[in-house]
Amino acid sequence: MSEMFRRAAILGLLSAVGPFAIDMYLPAMPTIATDLKTSIAGTQATLTAFFLAFGLAQMVYGPWADAAGRKLPLLCGLALYVVASIGAAVAPDIQTLIVARLVQGLGAAAVMVIPRAIIRDWSTGTEATRLMAMVMLVISVSPMLAPLAGSFVILLADWRAIFWVMVVAGLASLLVTVTALPETLPPAMRRPVSASRLLRETAGLFAHRGFMVLTFVGAFGMASFFVFIASASFVYTSQFGLSPTGFSIAFAINAAGFFAGSQLAGSAGGRWGMGPVVRGATAGFALAACTLLALDLSGLAGLVVIIVLLAAGNFCLGFVIPAVMVMALDDQGERAGLASSLGGTLQMMTGGLLVAAVGPLFDGTATPMIATIAFCAVVATALARLVPVQAARAAT
Rank of each mutant, 00 (worst) to 15 (best):
S142E: 00
G170I: 14
V99R: 02
V193F: 13
A41W: 03
M369F: 02
A100R: 11
E127P: 00
S238D: 15
A180Y: 12
G107Y: 10
V305L: 07
C376D: 02
F216R: 00
Y81E: 12
F247N: 12
L342T: 06
F216V: 00
G42C: 06
G62K: 04
E3L: 09
G333C: 08
T129H: 00
F225I: 15
A356H: 03
L102P: 07
S224D: 08
I32R: 06
A21R: 01
L214M: 11
L383N: 01
R279F: 05
S142G: 02
A133V: 02
M4K: 10
R335K: 11
A294R: 12
G351T: 02
T38C: 03
A172G: 10
F251V: 13
L342S: 05
D35Q: 06
A328V: 04
R393N: 06
A384S: 12
V277L: 15
P388C: 04
L11D: 01
T179Y: 13
I154Y: 07
V217R: 00
L78M: 15
G359I: 01
G337M: 04
T350Q: 06
A79H: 13
L26F: 05
M134K: 05
A100N: 05
R101Y: 13
A128P: 02
A230F: 13
A169K: 02
R191E: 15
F20Y: 11
A281M: 09
G170N: 11
L353W: 06
L97C: 11
M325E: 03
T177K: 08
I229P: 02
F225S: 05
A311D: 05
A312L: 15
G55L: 07
A79R: 13
L56H: 07
T345G: 06
G150P: 08
A366Y: 01
G210W: 09
V99C: 12
S173Y: 09
G170K: 11
F20R: 01
L156C: 08
A377D: 01
P92D: 14
G359C: 03
R70T: 14
V168N: 02
E127A: 01
A161K: 08
R385V: 00
R70V: 13
D331F: 00
I229V: 15
L14C: 08
G337C: 02
A203E: 03
